[in-house]
Amino acid sequence: MKRTNELIVALAVMAVIIVVTWGIYAVGDNMPGGVTPFSKDVYQLHNVILAVVTVIGVLVFTAMFTSIIVHRKSKGQEPAKFTHSTAAEITWTAIPVLILVIMAIPATGVLIDMEETGGADINIKVTGYQWLWQYEYLEDEIGFYSTLDRDSNAARQINSGVDVHTVENYLLEVDKRLIVPTDTKIRFLLTSGDVIHSWWVPELGWKRDAIPGMVNEAWTLIEEEGIYRGQCAELCGKDHGFMPIVVEAVSPSEYRQWVADRKAEQAAEAGDEPSEVQQITAADEPAHNADQG
């Protein structure tokens, strides 16, 4: 009698929990799958681990709420007297261990893959500064600074009076995008000129810290042309929220064209090329010091 009671309630509870969980996912399971082989691997891992914890959660909460509903004093339940069960305790130690081992295997595989930075066709040095990024294409010897675009910058000032909804790609647009070719293994060499920053484009599947005096490596291979936006992900001072990253992936031929153009441009402006970061900051962000307290 009692056991059937528990079972019926449990089934009902589980149904409710599953509906709620489904609702939670429907609202916004919105992590991007990305456009590189391992951004997809990472997405996969995310989904698997999410599924694992969801299943565990459904079971645990079903047991708990069943108990809450059935085993009430107000229903005249007499408390049982048991205080332990070695078998149960061994089971719920062993099963999680097993699940974790199973999770660890693919995670290890993906991680090893991500660390494999050798054999890249293009090397791009990324240097973080307060509060902009510098990109240098090591093979082609071209480079430039990339900073928050003017519209966003104007709108983001306190009480700017601009409705930020009217600004296209508010806070996620730069003056000069990082142009890269698709289907090409690109190695990033990340460092910083002042404090720690972190270079993150969600669609590429990783973020990596840019640390002064250290060079970190990471790689990517973008499979689809497109514009991918990200932001600095490590607190780096007052304008940490305002140093976006925009990667534009183009076909290899377009890329070569762009490199050629850029080289010519660079040759033309040689001499007065901005080597001083401060110069850039001052020129491109006139209102920079306005909100310095």
Binding site: V60, A63, M64, S67, I68, H71, R72, K73, Q77, E78, P79, A80, F82, S85, A88, E89, W92, T93, P96, V97, L100, M103, A104, A107, T108, L111
Partner: peptide, 27 residues
């Protein structure tokens, strides 16, 4: 990563034990 994953095991034991404490109690 491995060490962190291991921490979930004793944490899980706690949660399971709490639920078993409630189970067939008189709440």
């Amino acid at each position: 990563m491995y060490a962190t994953m291991v921490i979930a095991v004793p944490t899980g034991v706690k949660v399971f034990n709490w639920i078993s404490t409630m189970w067939r109690g008189s709440m």
